[in-house]
Amino acid sequence: MPASKGELLKRMSDGVVDMEEKDVIEACNEYLEAGYPVFDGIMEGLVDGMNRASQLYDDEEYFVTDVLLCSDAMYEGLSILRPHLSADEAEKEKPKGVIGVVEGDTHDIGKNLVKIMIETAGFEMFDLGRDVPLQNFIEKAREVNASFVCLSTLMTTTMVGMSKVIELLKEAGIREQVKVIIGGGPISQKYADNIGADGYSTNAVEAVKLIKRLLDVA
């Protein structure tokens, strides 16, 4: 007897939380074969699992490395389900964001975690990577019509790059359309206020809440 929709959704969600890529892949394939709605599988299975993992991280039961492994399992499932979304569901407009580590810094684990959490929350993210030339943030934000830019650094010597990005956005005439969120070890709310950033977040979970609040989305 084939598994019910609820059983398969739970297997997907549990597989993500337990970092079991094989279980997620098997559950997603069974889900497709059974003909259940693909969008529900993504949201109520994979994304639900990632939300649970982020809560465990927030509760300090999971570490960054755990969440990254959970995200690997989620992305494996997405690679199976996403191609089967209906055209209407696949083309739904998502708020877009640009993220990267500012020029001079190559620490990117925190940035990767923030990107995963924001994507899980339903935003489309464009990841520029690490040691990103400052002008690249402006060019990509303009290219994709981004609603926000996330800047990260773990080094005090590269913090000034964040204020330069804000100035470059002003010079490009798009500062009013783009929210700027900053974060990283040496960053503080005071520094965000000083350079005119729209927000500062201490961790990935709070970053999602902040972006939703700034963009006024549920």
Score class of each variant (00 low, 15 high):
residue 193 D to P: 08
residue 60 E to T: 03
residue 19 M to R: 15
residue 179 K to C: 15
residue 147 S to K: 14
residue 209 K to R: 09
residue 109 I to K: 09
residue 35 G to C: 09
residue 37 P to S: 01
residue 101 V to S: 02
residue 218 A to S: 10
residue 167 E to D: 14
residue 217 V to N: 15
residue 163 S to M: 14
residue 28 C to G: 03
residue 109 I to G: 03
residue 58 D to T: 00
residue 59 D to Q: 09
residue 168 L to G: 14
residue 16 V to M: 13
residue 23 D to C: 10
residue 143 E to S: 10
residue 63 F to L: 09
residue 93 E to Y: 07
residue 68 L to K: 05
residue 47 V to R: 04
residue 161 G to V: 11
residue 217 V to C: 08
residue 82 R to D: 02
residue 135 Q to I: 15
residue 77 G to Q: 10
residue 123 F to T: 03
residue 38 V to H: 05
residue 81 L to H: 06
residue 166 I to S: 12
residue 166 I to V: 14
residue 83 P to S: 14
residue 130 R to D: 06
residue 13 S to Y: 01
residue 123 F to I: 07
residue 156 T to C: 02
residue 94 K to C: 09
residue 105 D to I: 00
residue 44 E to I: 01
residue 31 Y to L: 10
residue 163 S to I: 08
residue 9 L to T: 10
residue 79 S to M: 12
residue 113 L to F: 12
residue 154 L to M: 15
residue 115 K to L: 05
residue 53 A to F: 00
residue 28 C to W: 09
residue 107 H to Y: 08
residue 188 S to L: 07
residue 196 G to R: 02
residue 55 Q to F: 01
residue 178 V to T: 03
residue 7 E to H: 06
residue 102 V to K: 04
residue 24 V to S: 07
residue 156 T to R: 13
residue 184 G to T: 10
residue 13 S to I: 12
residue 135 Q to V: 11
residue 211 I to F: 08
residue 1 M to V: 15
residue 51 N to C: 07
residue 54 S to A: 02
residue 143 E to V: 06
residue 113 L to W: 01
residue 208 V to R: 00
residue 178 V to R: 02
residue 99 I to T: 03
residue 74 M to T: 03
residue 74 M to E: 13
residue 202 T to L: 13
residue 186 P to R: 02
residue 194 N to M: 14
residue 130 R to L: 09
residue 189 Q to A: 11
residue 2 P to F: 11
residue 27 A to M: 13
residue 13 S to V: 04
residue 109 I to H: 09
residue 88 D to L: 14
residue 127 D to S: 10
residue 110 G to H: 14
residue 73 A to L: 11
residue 201 S to L: 04
residue 8 L to P: 04
residue 149 V to D: 06
residue 188 S to T: 10
residue 15 G to W: 08
residue 216 D to E: 15
residue 177 Q to G: 12
residue 149 V to E: 13
residue 134 L to D: 11
residue 123 F to L: 06
residue 62 Y to R: 00
residue 156 T to H: 12
residue 77 G to F: 00
residue 87 A to K: 15
residue 91 E to K: 10
residue 120 T to Y: 01
residue 129 G to C: 06
residue 6 G to K: 09
residue 103 E to V: 09
residue 201 S to F: 05
residue 112 N to V: 00
residue 119 E to S: 11
residue 29 N to S: 05
residue 36 Y to C: 04
residue 96 K to L: 13
residue 147 S to D: 15
residue 151 L to A: 09
residue 69 L to K: 06
residue 137 F to G: 00
residue 150 C to I: 08
residue 157 T to R: 13
residue 25 I to H: 05
residue 35 G to D: 07
residue 57 Y to R: 02
residue 120 T to C: 00
residue 36 Y to A: 05
residue 132 V to Q: 03
residue 195 I to V: 08
residue 129 G to D: 09
